[in-house]
Design a protein around this nucleic acid. Structure first.
Lengths: 407, 407
DNA sequence: GGCATATTGTTCGCGCGCCGAACAATATGT
DNA sequence: ACATATTGTTCGGCGCGCGAACAATATGCC
């Protein structure tokens, strides 16, 4: 039951019905390919006649293509339809404190090339360098393939609409119009997004649809805790494009100081830095960027900590479990507020999921309001899949498949 | 950019375009009445011809009617259109710990009658008594008016889909199928909803649309803290129909015990009980239902406390301001997570808004991630408007105006 | 091979519905 | 009386979903 916004609506014209059905057909093909016209008609509960026309138009637009003919027990053999994703490319950029990740992939999210290099903090230099690398990367591709845009993910506040980085403390960027700078240097469309929300986008648009449904929260535990909320198949961006920041809700108002300036944020209890700090016995309340840099320099990560825990280091184990407990306490609040179909978890600490699952679950149970809510599915996404990069690619690929705006 | 759900979509048939436009027309008339066909056509950017047909159909369905002819500087005078709401009635029921509120109103939310009586906790007796009162209330209405349903609001967990009260501790109801019981006793359609979400529904469907937009959070501070989230004009209900419970997010994990069983919930810091407890010097950590009953018996409310504060009682003032501070700290998290267009505030303590606004705002600023977010509009809704009852009525009236489901 | 049967994909008439334009109805100003 | 302006209706054009008929293509049985 959605209310119609009477100051900003779209009426249905005589082509609207076709637009809607064409887009639905494209999505059904995408999720069930290879599929025949007849099967498509059955799934959409339309006549084969109309579906034939829709398919004709989609082929004409270059969105799908006819593949091999399939097998049938009796009767004429079906010709399979596929979504054209192989030769539609997107460049994904993930800018982080230490490294910048650059990936080339197609519209299905298939990885075609990847580069990881030290982040350049000077914006003009960064842009120039990036444009050079992208040009080089695209050169290796065949003549049929075309790059349709660049998705950029930044750790910090981003106005997705204007493409400006409002404040990315990790990079020292504030009020940087990164979109037009990169667009000018590469002559390609650019979209910018926050890292937590980008991960949610990747999960929504580039992963095989599970029965889990269309409402979920993505929680990425890394240097910070990035989160993205998807409701009814739509990413929540909010009035100022800063929605979804569960990472900075308090667990203790006077808890340890957080990078954001406040105290006792969820992030301050369960981020990688917090986990490492527990192990090394640092006072959580007195952490500073100094410690972050120390971690960088001796390059001891949460993954190393997990390895130690597995070899019987009791201190390592208890540090990880402590973070797991706070993770669970925060997830309980996520569930009470959003009550999503599922929560997706990513980040280094999920590599120890077998170790912490019970701790996380029991912490959740402490604060969830109903038992059903405590049973909310938790899904681990393997870190090697580069969720942030996939999210950057989704920024470019998604508009092709999104539902048309109506009413 | 919404993703199409390929397991549960609606294709556009040849009547879909008309369905969409008819519903848009109804909503535009509703918000801009009185309005002529020609004006409607201009607002919808359609031809007058089509609009004439849409209007014809809406009149045929009994959803709108032609009123007086208006004035025009030159040319033929317009005939005004109005939405038919006066003779479409809804019964609203708000069941609370001490009193049950019963209201009869029309589809615009106009109050036609109200009854307030002691809550009967026995479900069969409650139902029988309620049916009798509703029958009596409807008898007073003219023959043209027809009651189209009963909206019931309950303080606790409700499965809105099945109409079952899962757990309402204040009433002692658990697993009660209140919908079918009331429906059987009155022979009318019944919808049940949680009180926080109902308030949000009332704000969405029954208040004059402000430019604020379609995404907001409703926060009702009363015995507890009830909240409802509206995103893109749609109430968030969640997988188990329990979404929106900001009231039980923690401010301190080991803070005062909350009615929900957990510790340190926002509610435990800013509810009426917490405010009164501060005034009387009770230990927040050792509150019990005993204190709640004591409040009931000597009937000293937050409103009385506010009155004392206004007459110079410093202790009363500081108790109220303390609650205001915690209110603001919680609102900061609401803003960081949802980033809504506005937050609506209701409850007794909002009667002291002039006293606490500055405290609330500065507390918000402490924890919001951007200055823009800290400037999120806070709108006070006067308590005498019975927001919960209006929400109950909205449950019945809303389906008439909701956007049709497409794609 | 010849024929019945089954399935895929196309074509076509029908009716619904938006669009634009013409037209009737109704008011004002000169 | 006539030009002008505005509201509301009517009508032909065309886009599009719907159902049915039809062509194309496969298998199984005789």
């Amino acid at each position: 039951m959605r209310k119609i916004n009477t100051t900003n609506f779209s009426i249905a014209t005589r082509t609207t019905a076709r637009d809607i059905n064409r887009r639905i057909a494209l999505n059904v093909i995408r999720e069930r390919q290879p599929i025949s016209r007849a099967d498509l008609a059955r799934h959409m509960k339309m006549t084969r006649g109309v579906v034939s026309v829709l398919v004709q138009e989609l082929i004409g637009q270059g969105l799908i293509y006819e593949g091999a003919t399939g097998e049938a027990a009796r009767g004429r053999k079906p010709t399979f339809l596929h979504v054209r994703t192989q030769d539609r490319l997107a460049v994904a950029v993930d800018i982080r404190f230490t490294k910048t990740y650059l990936m080339l992939c197609d519209f299905s999210g298939r990885q075609l090339g990847i580069e990881i290099y030290d982040t350049v903090f000077s914006v003009p230099e960064f842009t120039k360098d990036l444009a050079r690398r992208i040009k080089q990367m695209l050169k290796g591709q065949g003549p049929g393939a075309v790059c349709e845009g660049i998705g950029v993910v930044v750790p910090g506040m981003v106005d997705q609409r204007t493409g400006r980085v409002l404040n990315a403390p990790a990079l020292g960027w504030r009020g940087v119009d990164i979109r037009s700078k990169i667009a000018a240097a590469t002559n390609l469309p650019v979209h910018v997004e926050n890292s937590g929300r980008a991960c949610a986008l990747a999960q929504l648009w580039l992963e095989k649809a599970e029965t889990a449904g269309q409402s979920f929260v993505y929680v990425s535990v890394s240097d910070g805790v990035g989160t993205g909320i998807v409701m009814n198949g739509e990413l929540i961006r909010g009035r100022d494009h800063i929605a979804g920041e569960f990472g900075h809700m308090p667990l203790e108002l006077d808890g340890p100081r957080c990078m954001c300036g406040a105290n006792g944020c969820w992030e301050a209890y369960t981020s990688n830095l917090a986990t490492l700090a527990r192990y090394f016995g640092w006072n959580l309340s007195q952490l500073s960027p100094k410690h972050l840099k120390e971690m960088e320099s001796n390059s001891f990560t949460v993954l190393d900590l997990i390895a130690r825990a597995r070899t019987g280091d009791a201190k390592a184990l208890s540090a990880i479990k402590a973070s797991g407990r706070f993770l669970g306490l925060g997830l309980a609040t996520v569930v009470n507020i959003i009550n999503p179909d599922a929560i997706y978890l990513a980040g280094e600490i999920t590599n120890a999921w077998d170790v912490i699952e019970e701790t996380v679950r029991s912490a959740m149970l402490e604060r969830t309001l109903t038992e059903a809510a405590a049973r909310t599915p938790l899904r681990i996404t393997p870190a090697q899949e580069y969720p942030r990069l996939r999210g950057a690619a989704a920024l470019i690929a998604a508009p092709t498949f999104a539902a048309p705006r109506v009413a």
